[in-house]
Deep mutational scan, measured.
Amino acid sequence: QVLVIRIKIPNSGAVDWTVHSGPQLLFRDVLDVIGQVLPEATTTAFEYEDEDGDRITVRSDEEMKAMLSYYYSTVMEQQVNGQLIEPLQIFPRAC
């Protein structure tokens, strides 16, 4: 299952990153890619938005798994409803 992660860049749009092994993705892998997209920032975590629009911070593989399972459940709903699949949007955080 292909996963598209949209890395939101403060004040300048976003970069889409296509991942072919989504469920095996590790927290460190995401930080590495964010580091390539935002080389001047030191990113130690990132956030995503849940169904209520609240930002949830991801700082570990466990939290990463929770984010992915949340995302895959929303994708299934979108597929069932015949909607366009939205990329998983993440917001890098420099701490």
Score class of each variant (00 low, 15 high):
A94M: 15
I34N: 05
L38T: 08
R6P: 02
Q79T: 12
D32W: 05
E62S: 11
E86K: 09
R55N: 03
M76L: 10
R55G: 02
T42Y: 07
I5R: 00
G35V: 05
V30I: 06
E63Y: 01
V58A: 00
L3Q: 03
S60T: 12
I85C: 13
K8Y: 06
R6M: 03
S21L: 07
V80G: 11
V2L: 08
D29G: 01
D54N: 12
I90V: 05
I9A: 10
P23I: 07
L31H: 02
S21W: 05
E62K: 10
M64I: 06
A66T: 15
L84G: 14
A66E: 15
I34K: 00
G22P: 12
Q83P: 09
I56F: 06
T74D: 06
P92F: 00
Y72P: 01
Q79W: 05
A14F: 15
I85Y: 15
L68Y: 03
G82E: 09
D16W: 00
M67H: 00
S73M: 08
R93Q: 14
G22D: 07
I90L: 05
V58C: 01
T57R: 06
P92T: 00
L84W: 08
R28C: 08
Q1L: 06
D16I: 05
E86D: 09
L84I: 13
V15I: 14
G82R: 11
S73Q: 10
V30C: 14
V19M: 12
R93L: 15
Q83A: 13
D32T: 09
S69G: 10
I5C: 02
V33A: 12
Y71A: 03
I90F: 05
Q79S: 13
I5E: 01
N81G: 10
D54K: 12
I7P: 01
L38N: 14
S73E: 10
C95G: 12
L84F: 10
T43E: 12
D50V: 12
R93V: 15
G35S: 10
Q83K: 10
L38F: 05
A14N: 14
E86A: 09
L26F: 11
D61L: 00
I34C: 06
Q83C: 08
S12Y: 12
Y71H: 07
V80C: 10
A94F: 15
F91C: 06
I5D: 03
L26T: 15
I34H: 00
P10T: 04
V4I: 15
D29E: 15
Q78E: 10
T44S: 08
H20N: 08
T18L: 04
G35T: 13
R28P: 01
V75L: 09
S60P: 00
T44P: 08
N81C: 15
Q36V: 08
P92Q: 02
E63D: 13
A66R: 10
G82W: 04
T42Q: 13
R6T: 02
R28I: 08
L31S: 05
E47C: 07
V80F: 09
V2D: 15
V80I: 12
Y70Q: 07
Y48N: 11
E49M: 04
L3Y: 09
Q79D: 11
S21R: 11
